[in-house]
Simulated assay, not measured.
Amino acid sequence: MEAFVVFTREITTDPEKLATYSAGVGPSFDGHDVTFLAAYSTIEHLEGPPVEGTVIMRFPTMQAARDWYHSSAYQMIAAHRFAGSRYRAFIIEGRR
């Protein structure tokens, strides 16, 4: 069953570190079956505090999403995201 990884950026704390992450995250997807459904486009906030940006990605399974997120390639570059911003991130399984 498909799974979706959702990132919401709540606040940028270090633009340079976040820029390093943005410039280097692409190769972490090599070898992973991922489709970007939305990435930092227009947001209409409906409830709760506004976010700076959102990314939604589709993977073929929960395990495939976990494999990408926990991969050494992603975790190495994600360190820059952790140092440069505060995000919420989760994986949600699609409907049956």
Rank of each mutant, 00 (worst) to 15 (best):
T54V: 14
R66I: 10
D33N: 05
A38E: 11
A73G: 03
K17M: 09
D67N: 00
F36T: 12
S71G: 03
G94W: 03
D14Y: 04
E52K: 12
Q75C: 02
G94K: 05
T42L: 00
S41D: 15
E10T: 07
A73P: 00
E16Q: 10
T8A: 14
A73H: 00
F4L: 05
H80S: 12
R86Q: 15
E93L: 04
T8R: 11
A79T: 13
D67Q: 02
E52W: 04
E93Q: 11
A83Y: 06
L18Q: 05
S22T: 10
G53Y: 14
R95I: 15
M62D: 10
R66D: 01
I11F: 02
T13P: 07
A73Y: 01
S85D: 13
G31V: 02
D67W: 00
D67P: 05
S41Q: 14
D30L: 10
I11N: 03
Y40C: 10
T13K: 02
G26W: 06
E44N: 14
A39R: 14
I11W: 01
I92N: 10
A39F: 15
H80M: 13
V55E: 01
T12N: 08
E93A: 09
S71Y: 11
D14M: 05
E16H: 04
G24L: 06
S85R: 04
G84K: 00
Y74V: 05
Y40F: 15
P27Q: 09
H45K: 12
S85Y: 09
A19R: 14
H80P: 04
V5H: 00
Y40W: 11
D14K: 05
M76K: 08
A39S: 12
